[in-house]
Design a protein around this nucleic acid. Structure first.
Lengths: 157, 157
DNA sequence: ATACCTGCAAAGTCTTTGCCTTAGG
DNA sequence: CCTAAGGCAAAGACTTTGCAGGTAT
């Protein structure tokens, strides 16, 4: 398990292509290509898990940026649909780049705090379909978190 | 839809029984039976959806209580496993009484903000089972939220 | 040149704690 | 009585905004 997603092993070249595409789309929405934006996108692409805003501040390049700058950029990207916000209980506000091939289902260990993706594909597509056809909902997406003890932490010590 | 759960139509008598049972268990954990605790449990039982702490303050009886009192009680109940915390994107910290027959799957409308339970039973039990047997996780629970447009809001106007 | 963006600082909001008084067991 | 719980107030943490100077286009 663990190699289900392209974003955890991108070459620099691939990363730059993705970032370039995102920036192109953002510019269509009126945003300007700035240093801060590029640094932020690189950081978000490099971190292949949901992250806290406070964690972004530890990444080289972004570390010198003002919190307000990061905050405003992330919020803008969220408004434009490029970033999604997640929450896991009381652990704070997480964000992640909204790439098409991203899973959105996570496993959280209550003891060590580790966050991992669910190691097989999501079963909720059919549920979403049912909510649409039988109950009239539209534009559905979902966020799912399992909470428990990971294999390492469930070993009695 | 909307009448799938017993907790939305409890008689006063049933409510008091449930609250009495909860308090009995809490007392085993060393908590005292106080007015504030009873008011809080009644309010949480009456509200059959996840609630924000700020919403509790609007409920008669609790309205006069100090925020810190409510906060400390809810946190204590959470530590004791009687309350669970939920999050839906950026909407704040929700809590709900952790009753055995509660569903934990919600539908949230992005337009009107309405929160409803998923109107059929959860498909994730088998997923949890697989995570346990195949991947070694223990004590699993989950929280699931669908985001989209509810039938009312998806009507073009 | 213009409108957007950034940094700095400050205001706002929500969460958390200290301390003394009250009250449950 | 003894200790947990409640009220009040203040501290802390995180989020959000105003403004002036800098930058992309």
């Amino acid at each position: 398990m663990g190699h289900h997603h392209s974003d955890c092993c991108l070459s620099d070249e691939e990363s730059e292509t993705i970032i370039g595409n995102i920036i192109a789309e953002l510019r269509d929405s009126g945003m300007r290509k700035t240093e801060a934006l590029e640094e932020l996108l690189r950081a978000m692409l490099a971190v292949h898990k949901p992250f806290l805003l406070s964690e972004l501040s530890e990444i080289p390049g972004l570390a010198e940026r003002d919190q307000a700058t990061i905050y405003r950029l992330v919020m803008k990207l969220k408004d434009l649909g490029k970033v999604r916000q997640l929450n896991f209980g009381d652990k704070g506000n997480f964000f992640q780049l909204n790439l098409a091939d991203h899973h959105h289902d996570y496993l959280l260990c209550e003891k060590c705090g580790e966050m991992t993706e669910v190691p097989f594909s999501c079963v909720l597509k059919e549920v979403e379909q049912r909510l649409k056809t039988e109950f009239g909902w539209k534009n559905l997406s979902h966020s799912l978190a399992f909470h428990g003890l990971c294999p390492d932490c469930s070993v009695p010590d």
